[in-house]
């Protein structure tokens, strides 16, 4: 499989659009976990590092590949650890008043609309 020219641009365009839409609906209350969460997502770079390191054939390449995997793994593991820790802290008081502060979240919450009779 080779991805070149316009196919690559299509992939980039669609991914960028997806990122824009996904982040656009996150409420401000989650901005910090979101930043560390997206930080975690680009930790996927560790896979590129693994590919590079496994294909290394000189000592210099092995050193650089080692650094790539080391840093990429740190990005992924650290990003996950802090995001998971932060998100676990968010809790409700049980009686959830359907107020507007969590607009983006409230449409997922099951609220029974008053039946029109």
């Amino acid at each position: 499989m080779t991805i070149d020219g316009f196919v690559a641009i299509y992939i980039f365009m669609l991914a960028a659009f997806a990122g824009w839409v996904i982040i656009g609906r996150v409420p401000a209350i989650l901005h910090t976990p979101l930043m560390s969460g997206s930080n975690f997502v680009h930790g996927i770079v560790v896979i590129g590092g693994l590919y590079a390191l496994l294909n290394a054939s000189t000592v210099l390449e092995q050193c650089i590949g080692f650094v790539a995997v080391l840093l990429g793994a740190g990005n992924a593991a650290g990003g996950y650890a802090v995001t998971d820790r932060m998100l676990a802290m968010f809790q409700t008081s049980g009686h959830q008043p359907a107020h507007a502060a969590h607009k983006a979240g409230s449409h997922r919450r099951k609220t029974t609309p008053p039946k029109k009779g």
Binding site: M1, T2, I3, A8, I11, F12, A15, A16, F17, A18, G19, W20, I22, I23, L34, S38, N39, V41, H42, I44, V45, I47, G48, Y51, A52
Partner: peptide, 16 residues
């Protein structure tokens, strides 16, 4: 590296 997963995840975070 011709790795679509990296392209998608990277660009997603770039835009976000």
């Amino acid at each position: 590296l011709q790795t679509p997963a990296l392209m998608i995840a990277g660009m997603l975070v770039g835009a976000a």
